[in-house]
Design a binder for these strands. Structure first.
Lengths: 213, 213
DNA sequence: ACTTTAAGTGAACACGTGTACGCTCAATTT
DNA sequence: AAATTGAGCGTACACGTGTTCACTTAAAGT
């Protein structure tokens, strides 16, 4: 009843997940992950793998879930930073970049499977990104008093840009990463101005838009 | 001297490229492309493959190049549409979405290898995207009289959003695709307004920015 | 104490993979 | 006409893959 058995099982399950994480790298993605190699690194026989996951796919989906979880935990940190009175935009971008920096393997997994070859994977990642977007959207509605519609457009654009920049950051050195961060902050501020202009001056701004076609 | 030999070689080379293209699909990406299957579909022996490409990697890079080429040809079409006096934003977005629609396999290849496991591939795709961005940037400087700096920020943001939307479009039905298109147009207009506000009212806008932190 | 359950094992299978090697034989060059 | 070149072929090899099956052996349930 001590659950020593269940505990051991959970332990090797974690070992498998950890082993899979370790094998993910810039050169070696989930697609080329091998059951046998993962089992070897986890210290169990290849066949024992099936006691924990039905498929490699199931393992992969678990990794995606954990990645999304980490990402959302990060979001909360970011909000705390905002509460302390910093700039939302700067805080969000820098914490996101830190996430990419500290969880390279997991971010790369999310990124690759976002446009990968398994529909189920793509949808799992899409779900995580949607969480991300909708929390940002809620923030824009609640704290910044944007309309739902405008908040949705803004949040969606921001998340797209930030994820895309995160992807570039994977291959960048520190200096380039810094440049990307500052660039992104500028871009998000442009979007903020645009959204602001859209809500505060809906009619006059239409002319400005027409002016540039 | 008729070059009948060279012609034949080029022909089977095209056959290999075409075969590779055909095997690319939502479920079966470049990573899991097999030399033997490609050779089989091209109608040659597996070993003959090496008469044309040193590696599968070399074939892959060829595919990326061709994809980028197609993409830039498309850009030109898009400009023609603009010259005819439509909205730049609408024209660009719709032609891009059409490209994704008509060249699904090639766009997916670009997208996957953009964050794929071969550094060489990633850089090849990055180069293509940069072409895309810098042409848009030039347009914004030349035709819309933005400063270089502001044009760069704008172009970069736009391309990131558009590629990201293109990715989503791959899994979308026609109705959803239409929604994505309209949403993107709105988003790019917000960016246009933001950029406009930034250049016309650099100082007052700072306050607006501070207001939303 | 006896039975059941289930995590972990090891051997074996069938299969697809990339690629090295030596060959053919038609197009090209000399 | 003779020599050379090179695209394409068939065989063979060594290897890693996922998965099956019948097993051991402790923990958990009775």
């Amino acid at each position: 009843m001590a659950g020593i058995r269940a505990a051991q099982k959970e332990k090797t399950r974690r070992a498998l997940i950890q082993a899979a994480m370790n094998q993910l790298s810039a050169e070696h993605g989930y697609a080329s992950l091998s059951l046998r190699e993962v089992a070897r690194e986890a210290g169990i026989a290849p066949t024992s793998f099936y006691r924990h996951f039905q498929n490699m796919e199931e393992l992969g989906l678990t990794l995606v879930d954990e990645g999304g979880l980490t990402l959302r935990q990060l979001l909360r940190q970011s909000r705390q930073q905002i509460a302390k009175g910093g700039s939302i935009i700067r805080a969000s971008v820098t914490t996101f970049m830190e996430f990419v920096n500290n969880n390279t393997a997991i971010f790369r997994l999310l990124l690759q499977e976002k446009s990968g070859n398994s529909r189920e994977f793509r949808m799992a990642v899409a779900r995580e990104v949607e969480h991300f977007t909708s929390e940002l959207e809620d923030y824009l509605v609640d704290e910044q008093k944007f309309t739902r519609e405008l908040a949705e457009l803004q949040a969606d654009a921001i998340v797209r840009i930030v994820f895309s920049v995160g992807a570039d950051a994977l291959d960048a050195d520190n200096k380039e990463r810094q440049r990307l961060t500052e660039q992104t902050i500028h871009q998000l501020r442009i979007i903020a101005r645009g959204a602001e202009a859209t809500r505060t001056a809906a009619i006059p701004t239409e002319q400005a838009v027409r002016r540039q076609q």
